[in-house]
Simulated scan of single mutants.
Amino acid sequence: MSQDQAAGLRQWADAQRRQQSQGTEELAEEPLDPMIPVPGSQEASASELLLDVSSGPRFAAPQAVTPPVPLKPLWVIGPAGREALTHERVRQRLEQWSALGRDWAASPEAWDIHVVKPDAPELARLAAQHARWALWISSDADAFVKVYRALRLAREHGGPQRLLALHEPHVRRQGLLNNLRAAAAGYLATDLLLLAR
């Protein structure tokens, strides 16, 4: 029996004793605890006042509230020009990495994804404020030209000097990824992090 129920039962019993000592049939005017059920008759036995254990408690205990885990901000530099990168595409890419057993990817819901253009005026301020940056790498035939252009624009606008290469899992290191990494380091003083296979 919870402390609230016991207090309510004591309060009810005191009211009953006062009523009997006064010789009246009316219930005491003293307010009862609204959370405690009042028995239907004055002759209610103690067993009627107890909870029926087979049916479970009448009042649910308050559930412990777990504070939400803060999302990890991830800033993704998308392609330059009119081609748009959506949050959903980034989320899908993170989901692919997670399915491959990459612990760093966690679940896509753990990330607070922000997509920014490489020539955004606020890029320098954002780069100074945030640590997690990624570079979107497409896998089409013009990928090297598009990604190198986005990297160059990002550096010209004060973008980050260290970025994770966010690419599809099937893109091979030899070729596109290694060439982008070498060009970023050699010409733009940018460290492009490639994930280990």
Results as ranks from 00 to 15, higher is better:
Ser2Trp: 05
Gln3Gly: 09
Asp4His: 10
Arg17Phe: 09
Ser21Glu: 07
Thr24Ile: 08
Met35Val: 10
Val38Gln: 06
Pro39Ala: 00
Gly40Arg: 15
Gln42Thr: 14
Ala44Arg: 01
Ser45Leu: 03
Ser47Tyr: 07
Leu50Ser: 01
Asp52Val: 09
Val53Trp: 13
Pro57Val: 14
Arg58Ser: 02
Ala60Cys: 08
Ala61Tyr: 03
Ala64Lys: 14
Thr66His: 09
Pro67Gly: 10
Leu74Gln: 03
Val76Pro: 02
Ile77Cys: 09
Pro79Gln: 00
Ala80Phe: 03
Glu83Tyr: 13
Leu85Phe: 01
Thr86Trp: 00
Glu88Arg: 12
Val90Gly: 02
Arg93Cys: 12
Gln96Lys: 14
Ala99Thr: 10
Gly101His: 01
Ala106Met: 09
Glu109Thr: 14
Ile113Pro: 07
Ile113Ser: 04
His114Leu: 06
Val115Gln: 00
Pro118Phe: 01
Asp119Ile: 00
Leu126Thr: 05
His130Leu: 03
Ala131Lys: 15
Arg132Tyr: 11
Ile137Arg: 09
Ile137Trp: 03
Ser138Val: 11
Ser139Gly: 04
Asp142Asn: 15
Asp142Pro: 13
Phe144Cys: 02
Val147Cys: 03
Leu153Gly: 04
Gly159Phe: 08
Pro160Gln: 05
Pro160Met: 01
Leu164His: 05
Leu166Gly: 06
Leu166Tyr: 02
Glu168Phe: 12
Arg173Pro: 09
Leu176Trp: 04
Asn178Lys: 13
Asn179Gln: 14
Leu180Tyr: 08
Arg181Pro: 02
Arg181Trp: 04
Ala185Cys: 11
Gly186Thr: 09
Gly186Phe: 01
Asp191Pro: 06
Leu192Phe: 09
Leu193Lys: 11
Leu194Glu: 11
Ala196Tyr: 00
